[in-house]
């Protein structure tokens, strides 16, 4: 079975990404770690779907692949608007 080594590799990568998300240190490390974890989840779901013989469950991987990046965009917008607001508040004083 080719699936097991692949799944092992994916889980190891997920654990590494999780370690980065837990350790930080900067916010961007965490953002990247979450994004990477999401990508690995998509792969994990796809491989498992084929391993279980249910390729129709690929819908799930597809859903993640389509909307996983929205969270990252929200993070970027969050930082941007906070930066602008802080700059504005500094100018106001």
């Amino acid at each position: 079975m080719i699936f097991y080594p692949v799944l092992f590799a994916l889980i190891a990568t997920m654990a590494l990404a999780l370690a980065r998300a837990l350790l930080g240190p900067s916010l961007y490390d965490r953002v990247l770690a979450v994004n990477m974890f999401g990508t690995k989840t998509v792969l994990f779901l796809a491989v498992t779907a084929f391993m279980l013989g249910r390729p129709d469950f690929l819908d799930l991987a597809l859903a993640y692949a389509a909307i996983n990046f929205i969270g990252v965009l929200a993070v970027l917008q969050f930082f941007q608007s906070r930066e602008i607001r802080q700059r504005y508040e500094r100018q106001g004083r």
Partner: peptide, 28 residues
């Protein structure tokens, strides 16, 4: 902020676990 990022990972892990338990609708 770190808690929000980690809760994203929590949700991903939860979905994978549901999927392994063959509960595809819940995982979706």
């Amino acid at each position: 902020f770190a808690a929000v990022m980690l809760s994203g990972i929590f949700s991903l892990l939860m979905a994978v676990n549901f999927f392994l338990l063959d509960a595809a609708d819940v995982a979706l």
